[in-house]
Design a binder for these strands. Sequence first.
DNA 1: CTAATATATGAATAAATAATCATATGAAGA
DNA 2: TCTTCATATGATTATTTATTCATATATTAG
Lengths: 109, 109
Amino acid sequence: MHDHEVEVRIASKEIPSDERIERMSRLYKVFGDPTRLRVLMLLSSGRLCVKAICELLEMSQSAVSHQLKNLKDNRLVGCERSGKEVFYFLLDDHVGKIISQGREHVEEE
Amino acid sequence: MHDHEVEVRIASKEIPSDERIERMSRLYKVFGDPTRLRVLMLLSSGRLCVKAICELLEMSQSAVSHQLKNLKDNRLVGCERSGKEVFYFLLDDHVGKIISQGREHVEEE
DNA sequence: CTAATATATGAATAAATAATCATATGAAGA
DNA sequence: TCTTCATATGATTATTTATTCATATATTAG
């Protein structure tokens, strides 16, 4: 028996299921794009309509809408129509926490 | 003046610099791949050599080494040679925290 | 109803990326 | 030295993905 086999057994106790890993990495992937991250940060200060987000990020309406769809599909944001506008808002409390953790990490360097 | 312009000013207070956003999203992107996430989880239980990681993940040595390089380039893991083997270990305290936050989010569904 | 404004969305494209294959490097033992 | 085991790495390929463009849908004003 070799050293690494011992360690394999020790480590393997803690590995989450494939499906859970899939979900987690999908979540992180959402945060892994600068545009989506910026959107999430904007929305952490309050709800915004699409046009406002476009102006703040200086990005095309189409690009922003596509990313908002991604965020919505991943259940990180919700939206509500009000007249011609559609307002987006954060859905999950963890979003803010995850962002601050990442921010801390980045500060450290 | 329209509603969204008001909200723009409110929200824009909190937007981090482009460079910081870039860094943060790059960090999340690392977590956004199932293989890398698995590796990080394994290493959170202790240091492992490459071969052990390959066996635990049932993945080719090449694929694992490429991802380890990614993790090392992003300063999330360090490594140390010991004879023929190279042992990898987590570098950053935040890694564990970020993972548990993501795990919590996923549990909720 | 028509025009104007806000948003959504499908198709196309360019860029990023994860795995594989082949091969190189490095250490240890015969 | 020659071989073997462990790891690293460049090139290639298939897939994913972010943006753009064109267009569709929805709401309100006139």
